[in-house]
Every structure is written in structure tokens, then in C-alpha cells.
């Protein structure tokens, strides 16, 4: 019994897969790749696969992670090679490495996400206006957003979950890059951050045509940001 940590990207067209679809796609790909999986006991044996974090439908990610329990030790490089050919188009297997025993589960580990969000501008804007909006937004201590919960709409303050925020304009698109909270402490969604920024100067952006990119998932260690794979290397 061993655990393998795999880093992968999720691009077109598979960015449209739900979390459940992604889990199934991995499970099937691992089987096709003949990776020796270890199964749960019971009526309905399932391979033990756990993802770092759910990715919203439609979001491209360059840094996703999954832990897979295997029944025999297997080289990371071997996993990358055989799994890549078994994956549907749009998933790239970046790296794989054995997880020493006793390590925390991925889900409990990851607490930061870095995003880039791109929104088309409806009018020409200068960088200054956009930067002012960001500065104004960051100076506020309370960022109220609405979320649809099981019991209807709830208001949430997300300000404390936003650690970095930068803006720019490229080819008539507003670009925001941010580092936000994710995982068990709570999740901040990039489109919520965008909505707060836009509110400041009533920026004319088309929110129907957003492109969101997750640049990576991280673990904080002191004031360092490490990827879940770097965490293992740093041991």
C-alpha cells in the first residue's frame, strides 16, 4: 500500500467537467493505465482517490492535485507516462510522486489558490481607473457577497480571505490576478473578487464572458507558499 500524489492541469475541453465527472474520468483513466489501485472494502469497492479541491465548472487550472492509493509502490515517472496516454484530451499529467506514509490528506493541506480572471471591457478604460478600483476595494475592511446556500441566499464577508490582488488591462480585457483562501478554512471565488472591484468604479465589464484560470493550489508554510508536491520535497 502506498500513496501517489499527482499534479495535473485541466484545460479545454475538460474544464467543463463537474467535480464528480472529474473523479470518474480519473478513476477510469487510472484503470486504463493499469495503475495497481487499492480498493475500499465492502459491497461496492471503490478505488481510493482524493482531490485537493473541487474546481468550479468552466475554470481552467494549471495546478490541480490528486492523491491515489495504490496496492504496490510505483515510480512517479512511470505513473506520469502511463497515465498521460490514458487521459482524455485536456488533462495534462505534470508530475507524480510517492507520498511518504503519515502525511496529511491533500484536502486538509491546501489552503491557498491563485487565480487569474479575465473579463472583456465594454468600453475603453485606462489602467489608472482600474488600479484605483483595486486600491479602493482593498482599503475596505468588509467585502460583502451573496451566496446561494441550501437555506437560500446568505451574505458573506470575504475580505479576510483575499491576500493579494493585482490588476491590468490587456487587449481591452480587465485582468485580475489574486491569491485567495481555499480549503477547509473557507473558499473565496474569483468572480466575487471581480464583482467587488467592479463595484468600486462601476467598471464596464461583460460578466457573461469571463475566463477564469486557476494558476495553482498552495500550502502556506511560514510565509512561504509551497505546492502540494513541493511540500513533499521539502520534508
Amino acid at each position: 500500500m502506498a500513496r501517489i500524489r499527482i499534479a495535473f492541469s485541466k484545460e479545454d475541453p475538460v474544464r467543463w467537467l463537474s467535480h464528480l465527472d472529474t473523479q470518474k474520468a480519473f478513476e477510469r483513466a487510472l484503470r486504463r493505465a493499469q495503475i495497481p489501485l487499492s480498493y475500499s472494502e465492502g459491497f461496492n469497492p471503490h478505488p481510493k482517490i482524493s482531490f485537493a479541491s473541487a474546481l468550479a465548472v468552466g475554470v481552467v487550472s494549471l495546478g490541480e492535485y490528486v492523491d491515489v492509493e495504490v496496492s504496490q509502490e510505483i515510480e512517479g515517472a512511470e505513473v506520469v507516462k502511463s497515465l498521460q496516454t490514458a487521459m482524455p484530451e485536456g488533462f495534462r499529467i505534470i508530475e507524480a510522486t510517492l507520498v511518504p506514509s503519515g502525511q496529511k490528506a491533500l484536502m486538509a493541506l491546501v489552503n491557498r489558490a491563485q487565480y487569474r480572471i479575465k473579463a472583456p471591457l465594454l468600453k475603453v478604460l485606462d489602467e489608472k481607473t482600474v488600479q484605483d478600483a483595486v486600491v479602493n476595494a482593498l482599503s475596505l475592511t468588509n467585502w460583502q457577497v451573496e451566496r446561494e446556500g441550501k437555506k437560500g441566499t446568505v451574505i458573506k464577508d470575504i475580505r479576510s480571505g483575499v491576500y493579494e490582488l493585482k490588476s491590468s488591462i490587456i487587449e481591452n480585457h480587465l485582468l485580475l490576478e489574486m491569491l485567495v483562501q481555499t480549503g477547509s478554512e473557507g473558499n473565496v471565488r474569483p468572480e466575487e473578487v471581480l464583482s467587488i472591484v467592479v463595484q468600486q468604479e462601476s467598471l464596464p465589464v461583460n460578466v457573461d464572458r469571463l475566463r477564469i484560470l486557476r494558476l495553482g493550489l498552495f500550502v502556506t508554510k511560514g510565509d512561504q507558499l509551497l505546492t502540494p508536491i513541493e511540500v513533499l520535497k521539502a520534508l
Partner: peptide, 20 residues
């Protein structure tokens, strides 16, 4: 499709193709 439609409809993978 990529920019405007798939994020509006239920079950976008009905239309994306790309299955293994």
C-alpha cells in the same frame, strides 16, 4: 460556445465532445 454558451447551460458536457 466556449465563451458564452457552455457556462449558461445545464450539463455542458452534453455539447463539448472530447470524450476518451
Amino acid at each position: 460556445l466556449e465563451d458564452e454558451l457552455l457556462n449558461k447551460v445545464t450539463k455542458p458536457t452534453r455539447y463539448t465532445g472530447g470524450e476518451y
